[in-house]
Design a protein around this nucleic acid. Structure first.
Lengths: 245, 245
DNA sequence: CCTATCCAGATTGTATACAATAATGCAGAG
DNA sequence: CTCTGCATTATTGTATACAATCTGGATAGG
């Protein structure tokens, strides 16, 4: 990438640059490219994404409302670092929400959706095999996908939020160990849901969430500095991609 | 322009004018002074609160993230008017969340908190006697208070959100009939929680939420026009008051 | 050598200016 | 009379400018 080409290349396909900033930052946080406690200066971000501070601020506020970012007055925004206590709180809420998801979906999962879910699990498998940063994101997106299939928009939003926050929690307290079992549990859950075995589905989900929480132990990994620019330059380009493969 | 008196009277006691706009609009919506579908032009609001569009926008975005306001691109913000389908969705989620509140609080309610709750119920009673607009808000705030007492901040936020949205739903579909029973049910709930009768508490809460949902039927009341300015001029002044009496 | 104070730089908070888009109303044709 | 097309106006979307606040370091005093 020679010369100083303005990064307006995105214009034709970018109806909403604000969402691009939001999505880019969100992915960077979920995939743990940005770690809890990292500072998020408006200038730097705006530069990388090619927008003014106005849009950056609005994105940061949105992320803050979802709990991924903390905004401290006159001190700027940071990637949130939830305490152990709030981690427990988040899991308590998550369990209830996922309960509802299973309850709404058991026996009502159509073949189309089941197929989509199985394809997603396959993606998880291959991402996990490559040990890439995407496996974290994909594992979470499975739950979001499931919640969206209930047709309950509020539930989907809440599940999306707690799922994202769990990524943060694992980044802070989780063991680096792989999420092999998670992928299998996802597959089992689909089977149970499709077959209408709601008891099983509920049990599997409970166990699964428990396993995720289990992985949360103290394990503070040091973080590098000044990676921000290079990270953002990566996420600025791929920001618009959604759940699709 | 000549020197019109700036309405900066609030400065000394207003550390955060942005929150004032947010709180004022929120109350106006919860108390049904602003009704679902009402337009919320940035200029008008900014004028009334004495702030620039910047802060108004940020407040509207925040309200939108809570589901009280809908923002449509290039078309401005409106008080949200949830569909009947999404009303059902909201109640589904609310039931689960309130379940968790009861579960966390049963037998763990200290005397201080119980006292505070009983005082709140008294407020509800008197507001209901006067048939003022505050009774709507207070009924909701009971549930928010309860959720806050769990110490689970996320749960409190979610309960606050679904509670607010329920106010909207009642404004749209609710019968104008009073919420007498609700006040009594609140009192019963406190007793059950304090005594540690978690079964009872859970049952009362379920019945209570059911009763609230019951009141949601089609009953479209026409809305007046151009009340906006006068409404806002009222809420601009009283914006900073919180839960305290 | 350590501590306190103050200045300069950097960063955020808010207002305003300008650009882009949608809403409105009028004119003319059918 | 109604409908279509265009010009005007109102409102939102974004960028920039300025004010307020915080941060870090240099310097003087203990």
């Amino acid at each position: 990438m020679a010369g100083p080409p303005k990064q307006d290349v995105v214009s034709p396909l970018m109806p909403d640059r604000s969402s691009a900033v939001y999505a880019g930052l969100r992915r960077a946080i979920i995939e743990q490219a940005l770690l809890p406690g990292d500072r998020l200066p408006e200038d730097t971000i705006g530069e990388q994404f090619g927008v003014s501070r106005t849009l950056v601020r609005s994105s940061l506020t949105r992320l803050a409302s979802e709990g991924l970012v903390e905004q401290r007055r006159n001190k700027g925004a940071y990637v949130a670092s939830p305490s152990l206590a709030s981690a427990r709180d988040i899991f308590d809420v998550r369990r209830k929400l996922e309960d509802l998801v299973v309850q709404l979906l058991a026996g009502r999962l159509n073949q189309d959706d089941a197929k989509k879910l199985r394809e997603h699990v396959e993606q998880e498998r291959s991402a996990h095999a490559q040990d890439g940063p995407e496996s974290i994101r994909l594992a979470g997106e499975f739950h979001i996908l499931l919640a969206e299939m209930t047709g309950n928009a509020l539930l989907a939003r809440y599940v999306s939020e707690v799922t994202s926050r769990c990524s943060l929690i694992l980044a802070l307290y989780g063991r680096p160990h792989s999420s092999e079992c998670a992928v299998n549990e996802h597959a089992q859950l689909i089977d149970a849901l499709e077959a209408g075995r709601s008891e099983d589905a509920c049990r599997i989900m409970a166990h699964h969430i428990g396993a995720v929480q289990e992985r949360a132990h103290i394990d503070n990994t040091p973080r590098n500095e000044q990676r921000l620019k290079s990270i953002l330059s990566h996420y600025a380009g791929t920001a618009s991609r959604g759940l699709r493969p």
